[in-house]
């Protein structure tokens, strides 16, 4: 129950921040990767699916695309956590960057398949915020420890 409340609160805060500050629209994706890395594939893809759904409501893209891509990214983040050191800030930045790339590619392909629109591969300058990924990770960790005693890494 506590976990559901934590995720619900986190998602509301993240979505609220994304709406108010459109320049940090990657915050949701960073949170999905954070959960994937520290809580494993199952949690990663579940949170990715939910945040993707909510993001889909607020974004201009076709509803369902983000839920698909975020779920994939959360799952992949959970998988690769076994192979990398997730505490390394550089690794965090690279993973988030790759996550954004994967999101763009998957979104483009799905747009082409389901809406017959030519997808546009475009990474906005706002993605420069990925350099702040280590800072966001620290904040997410502190937020986690406000709720729970330890951050279980399921390996």
């Amino acid at each position: 129950m506590k976990k559901i409340l934590f995720y619900l609160t986190s998602i509301i805060i993240i979505i609220f921040l994304e709406i108010l500050f459109s320049r940090i629209s990657v915050l949701g994706l960073i949170f999905v990767i954070f959960i994937g890395l520290y809580r494993g594939s199952a949690s990663g893809c579940s949170i990715g699916f939910i945040i993707g759904l909510v993001d889909g409501i607020f974004s201009a893209s076709t509803f369902g695309i983000f839920s698909f891509s975020y779920a994939v990214i959360g799952y992949v983040a959970g998988r690769i956590s076994k192979r990398i050191d997730e505490e390394n800030p550089l690794a965090q930045i690279i993973i988030v960057f790759l996550g954004i790339l994967l999101n763009k590619v998957v979104s483009m392909i799905l747009e082409m398949i389901f809406t017959a629109n030519k997808g546009l591969f475009y990474i906005g300058w706002t993605t420069i915020f990925i350099v702040l990924t280590p800072l966001f990770f620290v904040i997410f960790k502190k937020w986690w420890f406000k709720w729970f005693k330890r951050l279980n890494v399921e390996r």
């Binding site: 594939s41 199952a42 893809c45 699916f49 509803f63 369902g64 695309i65 698909f68 779920a71 389901f114």
Partner: peptide, 20 residues
Amino acid sequence: PTALLSFYLVISILILSFNL
């Protein structure tokens, strides 16, 4: 988790298919 992902992906594809 792979099964869980598959479930989410199926739901997402269904959502996309029905154009909600």
